[in-house]
Simulated assay, not measured.
Amino acid sequence: IAFVRICSGKFERGMEAMHVQGGRKIKLATGTTMMADDRAIVDEAYAGDIVGLFDPGIFSIGDTICTGKKPVQFAGIPTFAPELFARVTQVDTLKRKQFVKGMEQLAQEGAIQIFRELGAGMESVIVGVVGTLQFEVLEQRLKSEYHVEVRRQPLPYTDIRWIVNEPGTIDIPGLSLTRDTLRVEDMRGGKLLLFTSPWNIDWATDHNKELKLSEFGNVEF
């Protein structure tokens, strides 16, 4: 279930709306309100109300849903930089689907941030967290909810920066970077750089004058 706040207008069960970030129309078949363990189906809701929508895996924190001819998109919620990084792989390669599904859903919840090297698949992912406890929660939830055991390999990266240049205006593979700087992308396709020290960040900006970096994701410049 994805919880949404109605900012204006009226929600009606079964109405069609535009999922702006996904670029497609969806049917809001069922609205739900929750109080402790009690759930109730909502036929109508108005500005200020919070309803739960069935999420087939398309919603992320900060997404906008709207009706009308002209799509409305609110500013994205800034994504803060994680401080600890590790490479996570599944122990049983036959459980790849469960591993990918679990990682993506936990990332959508905001419990972790996941990245992958440019051009790589989801066989192993780089996980970024704020505290070590998040790694332990990740491993436990993958095991209990998705029946997947994983290996965790700590990585030496200490800093992460989002590349905020307009798409196509910079050659990311051709950037002049130190050998221990890693090019990655997030779930939304945003391009980032992982650094092992602030000195490497200065190297990247000094040797690539056109490069624009940000400590936060989903920020408009």
Rank of each mutant, 00 (worst) to 15 (best):
residue 1 I to G: 08
residue 1 I to S: 09
residue 2 A to F: 06
residue 11 F to C: 07
residue 15 M to V: 02
residue 18 M to T: 05
residue 19 H to L: 12
residue 19 H to P: 04
residue 20 V to N: 02
residue 21 Q to H: 08
residue 22 G to E: 15
residue 22 G to F: 01
residue 22 G to M: 13
residue 26 I to N: 07
residue 26 I to D: 04
residue 27 K to M: 08
residue 33 T to W: 02
residue 41 I to F: 08
residue 42 V to C: 07
residue 43 D to C: 01
residue 45 A to I: 02
residue 46 Y to N: 10
residue 50 I to D: 05
residue 50 I to S: 07
residue 55 D to I: 12
residue 56 P to E: 06
residue 57 G to Q: 09
residue 61 I to P: 00
residue 64 T to H: 08
residue 70 K to D: 05
residue 71 P to C: 12
residue 78 P to L: 05
residue 83 E to N: 10
residue 85 F to H: 01
residue 85 F to D: 00
residue 85 F to A: 03
residue 86 A to I: 06
residue 86 A to H: 03
residue 86 A to W: 01
residue 89 T to C: 09
residue 91 V to C: 01
residue 93 T to H: 09
residue 96 R to I: 07
residue 105 Q to V: 11
residue 110 G to H: 08
residue 110 G to K: 07
residue 116 R to E: 03
residue 117 E to I: 13
residue 119 G to E: 11
residue 121 G to W: 07
residue 123 E to S: 14
residue 127 V to W: 00
residue 129 V to C: 04
residue 132 T to H: 09
residue 133 L to H: 08
residue 135 F to Y: 13
residue 137 V to Q: 01
residue 139 E to H: 07
residue 140 Q to L: 15
residue 140 Q to G: 06
residue 141 R to H: 09
residue 143 K to C: 11
residue 145 E to S: 14
residue 149 E to L: 11
residue 153 Q to E: 15
residue 155 L to G: 04
residue 156 P to C: 08
residue 158 T to L: 07
residue 160 I to L: 13
residue 160 I to G: 01
residue 161 R to I: 03
residue 162 W to V: 12
residue 165 N to W: 06
residue 165 N to E: 06
residue 169 T to E: 13
residue 169 T to M: 09
residue 172 I to L: 11
residue 175 L to Y: 07
residue 176 S to W: 02
residue 179 R to H: 11
residue 180 D to Q: 14
residue 181 T to Y: 03
residue 182 L to Y: 01
residue 183 R to M: 15
residue 183 R to L: 15
residue 185 E to I: 07
residue 185 E to P: 03
residue 186 D to E: 06
residue 188 R to H: 09
residue 195 F to W: 05
residue 195 F to L: 06
residue 196 T to R: 12
residue 196 T to C: 15
residue 199 W to P: 00
residue 201 I to E: 02
residue 208 N to E: 06
residue 213 L to S: 07
residue 216 F to H: 11
residue 219 V to I: 15
residue 220 E to T: 13
residue 221 F to P: 07
